[in-house]
């Protein structure tokens, strides 16, 4: 087992915001079972703000902690702010991740961005 920071262990053992928001405004999925990690983020948007965010994650300790951290970082942020969250920042907030986990498990920000893009595409389509 890799050496995880206390912060990672905290989020792994007590993951925040698990689940799927009801009638999501945006959905973003990344990963697949072959690489070992999958994340599905669902968001609720109100007045250009992420009002609620939840996730489902199949993956290792790092993947679960990353998902939990991303959900905390994104909640209450404007879409523009949330889009600026990077995988690197997430890893930093978690007190670092083992080197071999940086690539495969650290996809939470990507999943969040996909959910935002999904919302924006839908919003544009209904506006058009």
């Amino acid at each position: 087992m890799p050496e995880y920071s206390d912060k990672v262990m905290d989020h792994f053992t007590k993951p925040r915001n698990i689940g799927e928001v009801e009638e999501p405004d945006g959905v973003g999925e990344v990963g697949n079972p072959v690489c070992g990690d999958m994340m599905k983020f669902t968001i609720k948007v109100k007045d250009n703000m992420i009002e609620d965010v939840k996730y489902l994650t199949f993956g290792c300790g790092a993947a679960i902690a990353v998902s939990s951290m991303v959900s905390e970082m994104a909640k209450g942020k404007t879409l523009e702010e949330a889009k600026k969250i990077t995988n690197k920042q997430v890893a930093e907030e978690l007190g670092g991740l083992p080197g071999n986990k940086m690539h495969c498990s650290n996809l939470g920000a990507d999943a969040l961005h996909k959910a935002i893009e999904d919302y924006q595409a839908k919003a544009q389509a209904s506006a058009g």
């Binding site: 087992m1 792994f12 053992t13 070992g36 990690d37 199949f58 993956g59 290792c60 300790g61 993947a63 679960i64």
Partner: peptide, 14 residues
């Protein structure tokens, strides 16, 4: 089914 081994291993270790 449906879960990943390292997460299982870590939880079992706890």
């Amino acid at each position: 089914s449906f879960v990943e081994g390292e997460a299982l291993l870590m939880r079992l270790q706890m």
